[in-house]
Amino acid sequence: MTRSTRSAVVSGAAAKTRSRRSRASARLVFLGPGLAYLVAFLLIPLALLLSYTVFRRGRFGGVVYEVTGENFTRLLDPLYLDVVLGSLKLATIATVIALLAGYPTAYLIARLPRRWKTVALVAIVLPFWTNFLVRVYAWIVLLSGPGLLNGALGKIGLGPYELLYGQGAIVTGLVYSYLPLMVLPLYAAIEKLDPQLREASANLGASPVRTFFSVTLPLTRSGVVTGCLFVFVPSFGNFIVPELLGGGRSIMVGNLIRDQFLKARDWPFGSTLALALLAVLIVLLLLQAWSARRA
């Protein structure tokens, strides 16, 4: 009997090792493709990008493997610094407008009856079913000198106004393009909010404004932060909107990077600019993580 118990214990231990091993191999099977993808298409390109930043530009593009720090000193050149700061400014304005427009939208959708909620959410996502470029071109049709908006204004004796090809048009395009990315996380956060909390606040005598700023807004902060990040990140690095709606009259850091690779054939400096952009975004993500942990 003792013997059989011992053998049972032994076989149990063996089974445990076996199951641990099979769990490890299961992990490999399930994580493997994702990991391979990340290594091949994220880590390796990123490592290449990082390494380019310390080399010199080849005459026809590519890199000459001579170590130099000049790409980083060039970053501090007022010319490029101004473009980076300008992009920060435009992306910030676009984010703030998207937040101001997105919050009430998300709030109202969250309070709709369930059936209408679905309809409203589909309507928010619908523009994504059309190609981004086509949607940006649509704004040209709307805003251009002989365009639809000026045509309509002309009928009531106004204008024509110069709406296209400036920073206003760029911000409009950015807000329009990324507003859904603001609304969705806000909706998710607001939807989860227990309505009883608002009722309790009202019962305790708080005005609706006070309830909003003391209860609703703090409790949906994670949605606000995520939404802002989702709008800010693609706005900051955008180059299509400034090119098409800005008419090439103002450039953002995305255009600068694109031009380094496609026009100036300066891969090292293009990589350095991309790295700078990445650094800004990493700082923002860290801030978001920190804010999420506090909440």
């Binding site: 010319l79 300008g86 300066d266």
Partner: peptide
Amino acid sequence: FTRLATEVAA
């Protein structure tokens, strides 16, 4: 020329 173009655009 690259720099010139960037300066004008910026």
